[in-house]
Nucleic acid binder design. Sequence first.
DNA 1: AGATGTCCCTGGAAGC
DNA 2: TGCTTCCAGGGACATC
Length: 271
Amino acid sequence: MPELPEVEVTRRSFATAIAGARVQSVNLGKPLRWPLGCDPGGLVGRDVLSVRRRGKYLLMDLDAGLLLMHLGMSGRLSFASELPPRGEHDHFELVTTRGTLRLTDPRRFGAVVYAHGERDAVVQRLLGRLGVEPLSADFEPASFYQALKGRSVAIKQVLMAGDVVVGVGNIYASEALFWAGIRPTVRAMRLSRARAARLHDAIRQVLEQALATGGSTLRDFSSATGQHGCFQLETMVYGRAGQACRLCATAVRVMRQGQRSSFFCPHCQKA
DNA sequence: AGATGTCCCTGGAAGC
DNA sequence: TGCTTCCAGGGACATC
């Protein structure tokens, strides 16, 4: 499932190529998570200026308005001058003078939403509460520690919520907590300054490592030009319940937190 | 305000 | 072998 590294790899794979393109037509499949929010025909003739990323959202700036795109869990973008015929899971297509951008999403948790501009209510609703970008200079240990101070829930759930730091999904949350030596159940406000700093570093390193290796995930992922990650992410705990920890050989455990699976090593990760 | 639970969807795995 | 059930997950939303 696409988390920050996969979304960023996707963005980089087509952002330059599509910049300057003019929209020629729009094709819609089955409904996605939210309606497009405009007449598809109204996009025809618009120019694509750039593609940015905020959290797990891609923002495609047009000469008038912008498109917010989210890959959900199973979404994947393709961009090419010639794509295979549309399949049953292809639910959004932007045909442009530079090529066709296509969203393939079997589970349809993804979305493409039009906004008139940055101040549009839909932008505020979707992006307004997002936390800091973990790979930016704004993500620094002191303010991260302060943000955790106000939260009484488990640290894993705070990471996943996205209002403190964005882009960290179930896989990278589990992995970062492993590297930081912190059990997923520890209440955020109970973390010491030193442990918060270790977690801050772990989040950065896990995401940067994934990004550097092409955003490979456990499941099928490829960029908009069909490139796969250059290796399968070797997880320490995620998806490894019952298997030996790669550091200490203790059996990795799995538990449920807020309807999600959390994986941890009971020896390497302390309460 | 923060915390909690629910829902959306379908492919694949597991269970019978 | 073929059916049914469960599970994966992001994140908005309603409710407390």
